[in-house]
Computed example of a mutant assay.
Amino acid sequence: MKRKRTLLSCLLPLALATAALSQSPPPHLGAGAKPEEGAEVILDGSRQMLDEKWTYWEGPRFASALPIKWKVVEDPVDGGSAIMTDDRAADKGKYGAADIVTKKPYRDFRLHIEFYITKPGGNSGVYLQNRYEIQVLDGDKTKHGMGAVINETESPYDAYLGVGKWNSYDIVFRAARFEDGKLVEKPLVTMYFNGKKVHKNVAISKVWGGPNSGVDGGNNNGFGITDTPQGLKLQCEGHDVRYRNAWIKELNLKKADTDF
């Protein structure tokens, strides 16, 4: 005797399939992600693009000199080339001595960037608007650790693939908003780490790390954020950390919402 299929039994496979699809990472995320329409590639592993679109950040601790000393090296996983944070001015973790920043400033944006840490303890950082650091630091699971909006969130360390693998950050950032010269809305950031959403609409309270860390770090203990667009910065701390496939798309986020 055949049993009649109930409506529930018919809908269950569809519901399971829909749930599975909802857990899949959205497009344009993760290592190897292609630039979205309207995005600008800012780092492709070539010397030409490095020199064309980047320069040193000449902060108070700057100790290097153009041309950029960071090396173009072989991509150890997929072939091709990558950019290595190698500049002797930054040896022994002297951050701010040889950091590089895009020549073009940005306000609101969508960013994709990939990094590779060669050895345990590898340290660098991705600075949004040359102010707000998204940490790149192997082995650290604290608020100062891997993938943290530094000192604002815990490290989403479980999303990290580890040393010797390409990792990716996908970010939407909304700059601070001002009225009559006064800050009225804090900067916001949402981030996927290797395709996994780890931060949603995190409000950033200040520029951490002092004047050597980035723009406005020395203003009112980092709370004196100014109303200026700034470049994307990559930190050099004398470690073999490599970057590739970075692209950025300018946005105009009228609402205080960076979720995507």
Score class of each variant (00 low, 15 high):
1 M>Q: 13
1 M>V: 13
3 R>F: 12
4 K>A: 10
5 R>V: 15
6 T>A: 11
9 S>F: 09
9 S>C: 08
10 C>A: 13
10 C>R: 15
11 L>E: 11
13 P>I: 06
17 A>P: 06
20 A>F: 13
22 S>I: 09
23 Q>S: 15
28 H>G: 08
38 G>M: 07
39 A>N: 05
41 V>R: 05
46 S>N: 08
49 M>R: 00
54 W>K: 02
55 T>H: 03
58 E>N: 10
62 F>D: 06
72 V>K: 01
73 V>D: 13
74 E>P: 08
75 D>P: 07
79 G>A: 00
79 G>E: 04
83 I>W: 00
85 T>R: 02
89 A>W: 07
93 G>R: 06
95 Y>S: 13
100 I>L: 05
101 V>R: 11
105 P>S: 12
105 P>I: 05
109 F>Q: 10
109 F>I: 07
110 R>C: 01
110 R>F: 13
113 I>E: 04
114 E>Y: 02
117 I>F: 01
122 G>L: 01
123 N>V: 03
127 Y>C: 03
131 R>T: 10
131 R>K: 05
133 E>K: 10
135 Q>W: 04
135 Q>L: 09
138 D>R: 00
142 T>A: 12
143 K>P: 03
145 G>L: 04
146 M>D: 08
146 M>Q: 11
150 I>K: 12
158 D>R: 09
158 D>N: 10
159 A>C: 12
160 Y>S: 02
160 Y>F: 02
161 L>T: 03
161 L>Y: 08
162 G>E: 01
163 V>S: 01
163 V>K: 04
168 S>E: 01
168 S>P: 03
168 S>Q: 07
170 D>R: 11
173 F>N: 07
174 R>K: 07
174 R>Y: 00
176 A>C: 05
176 A>P: 03
179 E>N: 03
184 V>M: 01
184 V>G: 12
191 M>C: 10
191 M>E: 06
197 K>S: 09
198 V>H: 01
198 V>W: 02
199 H>N: 09
199 H>L: 14
201 N>T: 01
202 V>E: 04
202 V>T: 12
205 S>T: 15
205 S>E: 14
208 W>G: 09
214 G>T: 10
224 G>S: 01
231 G>S: 05
233 K>C: 09
235 Q>W: 02
236 C>K: 11
236 C>M: 14
236 C>V: 11
238 G>V: 03
240 D>Q: 14
240 D>W: 07
241 V>K: 03
242 R>L: 09
246 A>P: 11
252 N>C: 11
252 N>D: 14
254 K>F: 11
